[in-house]
Simulated scan of single mutants.
Amino acid sequence: MKILIIEDEFLIAEGVSLTLQSAGHAVTGIAEDLPTALALAGQEKPDMAFVDIKLANGSNGLDVARALKAMGIACVFATGNPPNKAQAGGVGLGYIAKPFSPRVLVQTAAFVAGVLSPGAPSAAAPHGFVTL
């Protein structure tokens, strides 16, 4: 699966990228703000994105997720500031709260792959994933 990472903390973004690549996913890029996320999403449309809520340069992950959803890209928030349904219902599939384990990250990507591929074997939502 092609995955875009929207995270402004370099070490976290690199760790997420390496974990996902080790699990066989293609990381299409890392963005730290809304303009960069939209540019990367337009270059090589990912299947999904992991989106932090608080981003660089005053960007907000909820705005990023709304823009990506309009492009047909599924989003999961990966954040220390979990959104509530009133904020993010209908924008993101759910969230995993920081700090999350590599296992939860990989299992969440597998779960989303199942959601996006009707007829494919679906994985159960991992422990730590909260549906919005």
Results as ranks from 00 to 15, higher is better:
Gln43Tyr: 01
Ala37Val: 07
Leu105Thr: 13
Ala74Gly: 09
Leu11Gly: 02
Gly89Ser: 14
Ala23Met: 11
Lys54Cys: 04
Leu68Lys: 09
Asp33Thr: 08
Lys98Val: 11
Leu68Thr: 08
Phe111Val: 06
Ile30Leu: 14
Gly24Asn: 12
Ala125Thr: 12
Asn81Met: 13
Pro118Lys: 02
Gln107Thr: 07
Met48Val: 06
Ala70Pro: 09
Val51Trp: 02
Lys85Phe: 02
Val130Gln: 10
Gly94Pro: 08
Ala49Phe: 03
Ala49Ile: 02
Lys69Phe: 00
Ile96Val: 15
Gly72Asp: 07
Thr28Ile: 15
Ala110His: 15
Pro46Ile: 05
Lys69Ile: 02
Val112Met: 02
Leu38Trp: 01
Glu9Thr: 10
Ala70Glu: 15
Thr19Pro: 00
Leu40Ala: 03
Thr108Ser: 05
Ala26Ile: 15
Leu38Ile: 08
Pro46Glu: 02
Leu55Thr: 06
Phe77Glu: 00
Ser101Asp: 12
Ser59Asp: 11
Asn81Ala: 12
Val76Glu: 00
Ile3Pro: 09
Pro35Asp: 09
Asp8Tyr: 04
Val76Phe: 00
Ala70Ser: 14
Lys69Glu: 03
Val91Ala: 10
Ala88Gly: 13
Glu9Arg: 08
Gly24Thr: 15
Val130Trp: 06
Gly89His: 13
Asp52Lys: 12
Met71Tyr: 01
Val104Cys: 13
Gln21Tyr: 00
Pro82Leu: 10
Gln107Pro: 00
Ala37Phe: 02
Gly94Val: 11
Ala23Phe: 08
Lys54Asp: 09
Met48Asn: 05
Leu105Cys: 11
Ile73Leu: 09
Ile12Tyr: 03
Gly128Tyr: 01
Pro83His: 06
Gly61Lys: 12
Gly80Ile: 04
Glu14Lys: 13
Met48Phe: 05
Gly72Ile: 03
Lys2Asp: 15
Phe10Val: 14
Gly94Ser: 12
Glu14Trp: 05
Leu38Phe: 06
Val104Gln: 02
Leu132Lys: 09
Ile53Pro: 03
Ile5Asn: 12
Gly15Cys: 11
Ile53Gln: 03
Pro118His: 07
Val51Met: 05
Gly90Leu: 07
Ala74Phe: 00
Leu20Val: 11
Val76Met: 00
Ala109Trp: 00
Glu44Lys: 10
Gly89Met: 13
Phe100Pro: 04
Gln43Trp: 03
Phe50Gln: 01
Ala49Gly: 04
Leu20Lys: 13
Leu68Trp: 05
Leu105Ser: 10
Leu34Val: 08
Gln107Asn: 12
Gln107Arg: 14
Gly15Met: 10
